[in-house]
Computed example of a mutant assay.
Amino acid sequence: MANALTRSETTDLDAVRRYAVSVIAQSGGEDLQMKAVTLALLGGIMWRSKPGSTEMTQDGDSANAILSTTLGGRHLTFSYDQQTESIVMRDGRVDGPILHSFCNRTLIGDFERTFSALWG
């Protein structure tokens, strides 16, 4: 099962911006709560990620955007799951163990606790 991944940016900020556009489009674009969750999550990534470690790729099989970065020395991937309408954070690769899911029911404090735990 070979997936063709294509890198589509040159900087951390460009990767995060392109990922935000992709996730908001996938989530229907009109769901204000999911937009807020996406922006809060990506803010945490920009706050805590290792500079130069963030990139966005497209999964060639599903055209799903995948954001990968290093937080607190751990390589993490983020992808939008349309079935659960959430952004899934995984350890390592896109098929790695799920560490956390972020959706329209995620509380603001969950973001801070999640990223503080990764950093600390």
Rank of each mutant, 00 (worst) to 15 (best):
V21H: 05
D81H: 10
A117H: 07
A15Y: 02
R90A: 09
T84R: 14
Q26Y: 09
G60N: 06
G109V: 07
E30H: 04
S53K: 02
Q26K: 07
R7E: 15
M34G: 07
E30K: 09
A2R: 01
R74S: 11
A117V: 05
G44W: 02
D59W: 05
T77W: 09
S8Q: 10
L76A: 05
R74E: 12
F78R: 02
D81F: 07
G73Y: 01
S101A: 13
D95W: 01
M46F: 05
I87M: 06
Q82G: 12
L76R: 02
Q58H: 13
R48E: 10
T77D: 11
T70I: 14
A15T: 04
S62M: 06
Q33C: 05
L76G: 02
G29H: 03
H75L: 03
G109C: 04
T6E: 12
L99E: 04
H75D: 02
L5P: 00
R17N: 12
F78E: 08
S116M: 02
V88I: 13
A20Q: 03
L32M: 07
G43E: 01
L13I: 12
I108M: 06
G43F: 08
Q83E: 09
L5Q: 04
R74N: 10
V94K: 11
S68L: 08
E9H: 09
